[in-house]
Design a protein around this nucleic acid. Sequence first.
DNA 1: GTCCCTATACTCGGATAGCAAGTGTCCGAGTATAGGCGG
DNA 2: CCGCCTATACTCGGACACTTGCTATCCGAGTATAGGGAC
Lengths: 162, 162
Amino acid sequence: MRLGEGVEWAVHSCTLLALLPPGTALSAARLAEFHGVPPAYLAKHLQQLSAAGIVESTTGRKGGYRLARPPAEITVLDVVEAVEGRDRAFRCTEIRQRGPAAVAASQYAPVCGIARVMHQAEAAWRRELKAHTLADVVEAVNRDVPPDAAAKAVAWFQEVLP
Amino acid sequence: MRLGEGVEWAVHSCTLLALLPPGTALSAARLAEFHGVPPAYLAKHLQQLSAAGIVESTTGRKGGYRLARPPAEITVLDVVEAVEGRDRAFRCTEIRQRGPAAVAASQYAPVCGIARVMHQAEAAWRRELKAHTLADVVEAVNRDVPPDAAAKAVAWFQEVLP
DNA sequence: GTCCCTATACTCGGATAGCAAGTGTCCGAGTATAGGCGG
DNA sequence: CCGCCTATACTCGGACACTTGCTATCCGAGTATAGGGAC
């Protein structure tokens, strides 16, 4: 099981967007520059966040991305699902209904006992991600970020913002 | 995020092996036949289970696979990790230490706040899988399996076992 | 009848192709801006 | 000096290659078995 790099980039980008002053926006190129990742590829994931309604995009000269809702109303699960999709990681192919012991489909219980366990585990994973909002993440980052890095970030903000 | 089909096959196969009379074994070909899956590919995953010490293999004419431990001492997590690997799904690439706000590596907190959330969620997933043993799965399957399918399975057992 | 030997058939294990999805990149359509021009 | 218009530069969005890992398969090494033969 593997999560794509885009998940990490998306959560970091949303965290940065949460720190933006109201009324301002950051372009995909700026976000990529700040995180040291390929601009074109990050743009792809920002499009997914935009399609999911998590960020809003404004085109034109001073355009860019900004959060579509307050950070406290965006969960980490929202961001992860926007990038990684809403499909389940474990896909039951109903192999219990195949082979020499198979009977009519109507005879089987609605969900396979094995799939039930896997789905319970995934539900726990989602529940944990849903319990943390972007506001929580911002708070944690503000508490852990090195003072020097924070100062550099503020300087960079003042440089790139109008 | 996607789990490979092998996970489903492996758990089902282990469940079937848990129902075997002591002293008997099932070959990869028989397991594949019972589940209606490609024999050669299932064999690959059975090899992984064998390497992980979950099943034991005996070669030769009446050889095959059998559980290496009692079903109550094998968790679903053991099986999943054997097939899917023990690596974390979320891999933190430390992008917080890149870009214009980067400072010396020693300044940063040991784990990124974002990675911590992702790891907590994965820990919840693992905890849930670890809470269910093969014995639990066998019990659930015994409760849910259609009576006709159980009868067919017993007949198939008597046909293929010596 | 019993024991031993050999040939066999079946087993696992690793090495080998094919394909889908994630990864990475590019260019075109559209828009708010900035400057110049006219009034 | 003020307002309008146009050209510009910058933005997003979707369409196009490439690499990694999952999917699928095959063949070779090794062994317990089953049968036959000798004693």
